[in-house]
Design a protein around this nucleic acid. Structure first.
Lengths: 347, 347
DNA sequence: CTGAAAGCGCTAACAA
DNA sequence: TTGTTAGCGCTTTCAG
């Protein structure tokens, strides 16, 4: 088999080509393109000229090998098909590319096995750090990253791993606004469709709701606490379950927007109107929430903030910079009132 | 600066660690893990045992460097925020991982500059191949890939690059069904909201529409041919333009589903009903189309097929296998009738 | 300030 | 069949 990927034809464009064209050593080329300040300006100019003429750029594999830094960041998400995540990815990509990193995306599809596979893929590619933005992760995987000394960041899950960090989200703030909004409208009977409860942050959302509802002086009704799965279908099914109940709530809060959209659909199928028959509040404020019919009232969690905070924290752990690590403030959430909430029917 | 990424502490787990633990040479380890059949079973067993005990996996950077294959595939898309693309990415990820590849995603956001940057990122990471799934690409970038001998695959844009391939999509089939469906319902006045026309495949969709409309014996009205931008906002704005026209169409076809959802929104805002006041047909059949209110009638283009075909073609170019390259059949499209179409109002 | 040379972890000749 | 060795393209000592 041939050594060269290039059919043994053109000698692959390497640092050597630049060196010989610029009549300097490869070391000088390396220093120049890495902006080492000690390089003689004349030589540097020659190097840049050669780089330009040859249209050269360094082989990042080789760089990674010698430096031990792949400049690759893992991003593990639950499911790329859930619109929340693309919005998150977009921010990640932006920040990462700005800082010279590339992102490797892995979707777990909520399956522990797939999650394990994702983690393994990340290891094999020697990612410099990993952001775990799923709604839950197995502890042993975290330990694995820890033992490899790979910085990790994730939401809500505390860990003793020294190079890891938790991004805390203040779910309560937004949910509290939502509950208050509902209460002010006159609702006393509000249901909650949660995410998959084995996932930590889904649990956190639900507890926050329960907490708020009690603070508002409303006694939560177990029958109105349904477990969904953060998908559209899950929301629709959950709402259908609620509709089958003898005693109906007047408002529904959901653990994410996709669930809420599923609810809208179930209600549409049942010829029920929003907000006349039921008030509805989502969570996340995905782009689409503004465009459902009617536009969805929802709790906004800025995925811009989330991604920024995650990246900043990761990168600060990777390249300890002068600018000290900012004190981690929790990501806040707030209610965005649109048109799926109104006074309850019977009131 | 330290050489070792590992703080000079533990000697990083490498092929050498496995070799010494298994009491064989590194070559034998390499052969074993690469399933070269000539390895003695006893030694192989020792190697696997060591691999297992140490929890070793090869450094893909090093592999890439020596083999000239990064096992990285570029995937350039328009905008990850458009739900069509995550569905595509999901398929790509699946197929790629199955075949031992990793995917690097780049979003162009419809900006030529960003597209160029994406291409550059791909080059730098030495991707083995690139799938360009945007709605358009600059020729010079293709040439660049060509000169680097990187296989490329894309939609709709012919190229003379020998290692590139075009995935052709039979837009006409589905659009024809859509037009016929509308005609059968009694519509004679149908508008079309296109994508950004500088993008080739957006153009292809529009021509297909024009073609079909004429075949159906309807004379297209220039006023009802609006250029959108494949986003929700674009669809809404376009529909608002249409609504301002003195002579209104009775049905709207859109170049993609997001545009159609924007139309739904504009109509909702104007208190107009679908399908009573206007019939509406989208394009793509994204997951969400099933869940708009009312559910969107749309032309389905299987992104599963698309991704599969793209990957197959790319991989076949990378690892010429026994199984000859399947003759490329065009991706077909078909109408999915849901609930946004009905007889025209005035008829 | 510059160049020669070592070596990152791995694969593939080549020799034994 | 196995081990030794030469690089892949780059960064970084270490002499000069």
């Amino acid at each position: 088999m041939k050594r060269s990927p290039n059919q043994g034809f053109t000698p692959r464009l390497s640092i050597r080509s630049v060196a010989s064209r610029a009549r300097v050593s490869i070391a000088t080329v390396s220093r120049t393109i890495n902006h080492v300040s000690t390089v003689n300006a004349v030589l540097a100019a020659r190097v840049w000229k050669a780089v330009d003429e040859l249209n050269y750029f360094p082989n990042s594999q080789a760089r990674a090998l010698v430096s031990g830094k792949s400049k690759l960041l893992g991003l593990i998400i639950s499911e790329i098909t859930n619109p929340f995540f693309p919005e998150l990815i977009q921010e990640f990509e932006k920040v990462a590319v700005e800082r010279g990193y590339e992102i490797l995306i892995g979707s777990t599809n909520y399956e522990p096995k797939t999650m394990e596979l994702c983690a393994r893929r990340m290891f094999e590619r020697q990612v410099d750090g990993v952001a775990i933005m799923t709604f839950g992760i197995e502890q042993f995987l975290l330990d694995r990253f820890a033992s490899d000394d790979v910085p990790v960041i994730f939401i809500d899950i505390p860990s003793k791993h020294p190079r890891s960090d938790i991004l805390s989200v203040d779910y309560r703030a937004g949910i509290w606004e939502g509950v208050q909004h509902l209460a002010a409208l006159g609702h006393r009977k509000v249901a909650f469709i949660s995410g998959p409860l084995q996932h930590r942050s889904a649990g956190a959302r639900k507890s926050a709701f329960l907490d708020c509802i009690r603070c508002a002086g409303i006694k939560p009704n177990q029958k109105w606490l349904i477990e969904g799965n953060h998908t559209l279908e899950g929301g629709r099914d959950a709402m259908q379950k609620i509709l089958a109940l003898p005693d109906l709530p007047t408002a529904i809060m959901c653990s994410n927007d996709m669930t809420a959209i599923g609810v809208q659909h179930a209600l549409f199928d049942a010829s029920l109107k929003i907000p006349e028959d039921f008030s509805l509040i989502g969570f996340d404020d995905i782009h689409l929430a503004e465009y459902t019919i009617p536009p969805l009232t929802t709790v906004q969690m800025s995925c811009k903030d989330l991604a920024q905070a995650a990246m900043t924290s990761l990168l600060s752990r990777l390249q300890p910079r002068k600018d000290k690590v900012e004190p981690e403030e929790p990501i806040t959430t707030r209610l965005v009132v649109r048109r799926t909430t109104g006074p309850p029917k019977a009131s």
